[in-house]
Design a protein around this nucleic acid. Sequence first.
DNA 1: TTTGCATGCAAAG
DNA 2: TTTGCCTGCAAAC
Length: 323
Amino acid sequence: MPEGHSVHRIARQFERHFEHVPVAVSSPQGRFAAGAAQLDGHEIVQAKAVGKQMFLEFDNGLWLRVHLGMYGAWDFAGDITVDATTASANGRMGQTNQRGTDLAAHEHSLSSIGAPRLTRLRMSEQEKLEPDATSFPPEPIGAVRVRLLTPTAVADLRGPTACEVQTIEQVDAAIAKLGPDPLVDDHAAGEERFTAVVRKKSTPIALLLMDQSVVSGIGNVYRAELLFRARLNPFTPGKEVPEQTVRGLWRDWVKLLELGVQTGQMLTMDDLSPEDHRKALASRADRHWVYHRTGEPCRICGTPIAMQELGGRKLYWCPKDQA
DNA sequence: TTTGCATGCAAAG
DNA sequence: TTTGCCTGCAAAC
């Protein structure tokens, strides 16, 4: 159930551990057997994330497009690295760093001979680390649609909403349908595209932020939080949102996405005091302004947070601060 | 122990 | 517009 930040982190795992080595591609579950056969034995030459989609380019010119949807996940295992911030936030690894920045802790450095150390990392939802010492490669857990296996690392994909082999033309077409992604597109150009589209539509801004053709990577959590941070009424038609507010939404998304990719968490209260921020980091609850806080008092004004379904998804907002 | 929901999309009807 | 994905989690029994 990832929003854009986790997909970029997953792509980074593929860049680190799966590029430029032959990859055995299989479908333990069977549903992707034909696709796997087209990619089997080839090298991955590029991992690309755009919004919530990831594209892996293989050296035969074919691509694997993956969309995790609501409950898809990648499980990595073997000789893989894990970001220190993620690991410490999960309380599993001792090593942390003072600045909380993205110093990748090499939780591997396989010093010796033999099979790679088996470190498991689930990406999406909370990223969980299970340092373990079983055999490599591990048995697939659950219904694994695709397994990508190198001599030292393995990635298992389960429960995706989309998983298919594509040509470059199909990849380009898929990406062309997507709105700007701050980690792909130039920030200024992205801001212009986003602003131009939003200012044209009468659709409520809450729906526009979730529309992947308008802007890439925002999901239900970031949507609610961005709107609160802007103190903007979610039902305001796009064309009625003041231009500077629209630009502010884009810039705030740039900031939150970068923070999310760095930390592996959806931090949306980064403007809290350092002490409160630490607390928000430590507990999973109380991490957001309005998301999933129906009926609880607004952190600013105390008014009960409102919730209403809009376009089949739950929308949370403060009826007073976002009036 | 069981139930119901969920950070989302694509395909079926 | 509804269903499938078929998972992980927390809340409810």
